[in-house]
């Protein structure tokens, strides 16, 4: 799939933002007043910034409100509902913390639950697609969830939780890569099943429909050179997990924590680029690619 900057920004930033909101909703760190204000501003900037990035690639962003109507069937619609609900509930909860210095715990828990649901709904937009075997796996939600929570813990300054969650996110990421590399082959979809010509013999794409590119090839057929992919995976894992963990193991200082968070964010961007760029859509088979 084409690794469009809008979807990479959307999934990375809003994942981090809602991850942080989960911790704030649960009362970690236990802050009020201006400190709470700073935490909430950061989380809303990330969450809302990510969500608005997702509208950049729409053909008709002015009709975006219509996307709330089909929550019964569409994960994209559900994601809209969960995110807006989480942001509204946590805005009230945050106002309590910042302005009144009181914690309405129940509201916080509800907001944390809705933020978790948002993370899951975002991942299900991709995991539901049978047409992209690499995404069509329970490891996709596991990866979005563990990465979001690890980043959230990091930003919330929860050192112990962040350490474990980062390691977990790294493990899930590696598992996702290993199973993902076999997913297309295991899905059983081939050019033979796509054309139904398999019973006659070996099928080879001979001529594409047009000599030029089209929306389908630009959007869904993207090939990353294998050796680049391996390098990028190493870089992503180092930035996302290894370096932040090392920084966290040092005696605590705000500078180290900030560097850990920045390194983590850069690693998430890199991993998300790969998430899209490496994903094979079965329509590529019709065009003789992969």
């Amino acid at each position: 799939m084409h690794p469009a900057p809008s979807v990479i920004l959307f999934t990375s930033l809003s994942g981090l933002g809602f991850g942080l909101l989960v911790f704030l909703g649960l009362g970690f760190p236990d802050v009020t007043g201006w400190t709470a204000f700073a935490f909430f501003v950061l989380s809303y900037l990330l969450a809302v910034g990510g969500l608005s990035a997702s509208t950049f690639h729409l053909g008709h962003p002015e009709r975006a409100l219509k996307a709330f109507t089909q929550w019964k069937t569409s994960w994209l619609s559900r994601e809209g509902w969960f995110s807006v609900a989480a942001l509204l509930v946590l805005a009230a909860y945050g106002a309590g913390l910042v302005l009144l210095g009181t914690r309405w715990s129940l509201l916080g828990w509800l907001g944390a639950g809705l933020s978790l649901a948002t993370l899951i709904a975002t991942s299900m937009i991709y995991a539901q697609l049978k047409t992209v075997p690499r995404w069509h796996s329970p490891l996709t939600p596991a990866m979005f969830l563990s990465t979001g929570l690890a980043g959230g813990a990091l930003l919330a300054g929860q050192v112990t939780a962040a350490l474990w969650l980062l390691l977990l996110a790294g493990l899930v990421q590696v598992a996702y890569w290993i199973t993902g590399d076999r997913a297309l082959a295991q899905s059983g979809t081939t050019l033979a099943s796509a054309t139904g010509l398999g019973p006659i013999g070996r099928v080879r794409a001979f001529e594409p429909p047009h000599t030029g590119s089209n929306y389908l090839t630009r959007e869904m057929v993207f090939v990353v050179a294998r050796r680049h992919a391996v390098k990028l995976r190493v870089i992503a894992l180092a930035l996302m997990v290894v370096i932040p963990v090392l920084f966290l193991l040092l005696p605590f200082s705000h500078a180290w924590a900030a560097l850990a968070a920045l390194s983590h964010l850069a690693g998430v961007f890199c991993a998300r680029w790969l998430f899209f760029a490496e994903a094979e859509h079965v329509v590529g088979l019709y065009y003789g690619r992969r």
């Binding site: 729409l58 053909g59 994209l76 796509a194 929306y215 869904m220």
Partner: peptide, 23 residues
């Protein structure tokens, strides 16, 4: 249609194309 393109991703056959002029 908001032109999000998700339906084209969901179709295995490449039967949907987002018009580049109309969105």
């Amino acid at each position: 249609c908001i032109g999000c393109g998700l339906c084209a991703w969901a179709c295995p056959y490449g039967a949907r194309e987002l018009d580049q002029a109309e969105g």
